[in-house]
Nucleic acid binder design. Structure first.
Lengths: 241, 241
DNA sequence: TATTTATTATTGATAATCACTAATCAAGTA
DNA sequence: TACTTGATTAGTGATTATCAATAATAAATA
């Protein structure tokens, strides 16, 4: 989602010619454009099952449905394309992605890869504000675990790592995690939280939280790469049958 | 770049309801849209120095320059946004990215991360056609090295790994590598190939090529993660002074 | 049944337009 | 000098209308 991204203030040491950074840049609490809002709405629709995987998204239909113009819809769809939830086929249209077995493996692999990198970086530059945000998520996890809300727990899992990635403070990593998150959420909702015990997720994130907050980047890195060895095979294996 | 992506044919085992895959899907050698062509042209302009980092890209100016409509330009700019070369600020416009010190570190880190993952996967599913493509790139590397074309060598380096990533055959990974490649190329061209000896690059890729082709994924993984330890510090350090 | 031909729906692309917002500059004020 | 305020202007955000090109669908033919 991240409809409004923090604008990185360039420093004088940047590459290339110096183009002035306008004053207004600093205080602008960016209001999301209509396009962004529509994009979020469509995304929610996809994740909520209003549009199914593989289904075609017709521009004019959406325009009427949301009461906006075709151009706005087109922009919103482009945004979703970048987020990986919508696939564009030239002269054919836009389609909600389908998730294949290979995609599931990829998602798991990339989660490991990006989340472990994120954890490592976050441990190096955690702040008290970041700590508070992470603690909050883990608290919600504990509650969800007690009430055996598996679905919610898996989504909190993703939210935890998105927060970690934001703390890691890397534009590249954040964009990539956004590309990953949409498909991951779609898969989770379709698969309906079928793997891992609730408590196991909490047990995994508590030490990870601690490692990050204590600045132990190596340990954070190791703790965050979890699916790879034990789970990945079991996951796809379990799906296959 | 990848203006036309291979369309993944869904299999019946996919998630979600089954929506029929039309016949035309199979034989369509997708012609790139005008938008894609314009996007490539702008990208070349950015990498070629026609537009400088931080510079504003005014829609109507570009529309006149390329002789297309404003809408087409807007679409092309969205594509470049996803590729990470253009930054969009709501109600302000589109700007060529500036590359900060942090970005340089991030690019290096992400290259390691994605390229090593790519190498690992490629080793697991290399084909004779893929082998040929990789050998070709390494051959070009050898030539460039002999003629001390440092700049070209660094770009071949990126091309090698993009090829590896294509062989790895993961939509997610490919998209992410595309997000990385634009900024990486921009940085390389601005920095004008200032680090690493030509021969060192060849010496690195020859064993990597061999590892991938022999299916030794673990070795391929290790060989591909190179910048991290020895170079990253030296790189940013050298830049800083 | 398979292939060709028409029909229709939808995207690709353009053009013209208007509201709204940011950046700029100038004048006035402390 | 420094700091507002106000007017000006450039440029995006968004709409509407339109037309050509093309894919998907249905119908007709062999």
């Amino acid at each position: 989602m991240t409809p409004s991204r923090k604008v990185a203030i360039e420093k004088s040491s940047d590459f290339g010619k110096d183009f002035p950074v306008p004053k207004a840049e600093r205080h602008s609490l960016i209001r999301p454009s209509l396009e962004d809002e529509i994009a979020s709405a469509i995304q929610e629709g996809i994740l909520g099952g209003q549009w199914n995987p593989g289904e075609r998204l017709v521009e004019m239909e959406l325009a009427q449905y949301f009461g906006v113009s075709q151009g706005t819809i087109r922009g919103a769809l482009k945004y979703l394309q970048a987020g990986g939830l919508v696939e564009h086929r030239p002269r054919r249209g836009n389609f909600v992605i389908s998730i294949s077995e290979e995609d599931i493996r990829d998602i798991s692999l990339m989660r490991d890869t990006l989340e472990s990198l994120g954890a490592q970086l976050a441990a190096e530059r955690i702040s008290s504000e970041g700590e508070a945000r992470l603690y909050e998520v883990v608290d919600e996890m504990r509650q969800a675990s007690k009430q055996h809300q598996r679905q919610r727990l898996l989504e909190l899992d993703l939210r935890f790592h998105r927060t970690v990635v934001e703390i890691a403070d890397s534009r590249l990593l954040q964009d990539m995690y956004r590309r990953l998150e949409g498909p991951a959420l779609l898969f989770l909702r379709m698969a309906d939280g079928f793997y891992q015990e609730p408590q196991a997720i909490v047990d995994l994130h508590e030490p990870l939280l601690e490692a990050i907050c204590s600045g132990d980047s190596a340990r954070a890195y190791e703790l965050a790469r979890r699916h790879t060895d034990p789970d990945a095979g079991r996951l796809t294996g379990r799906y296959r049958k």
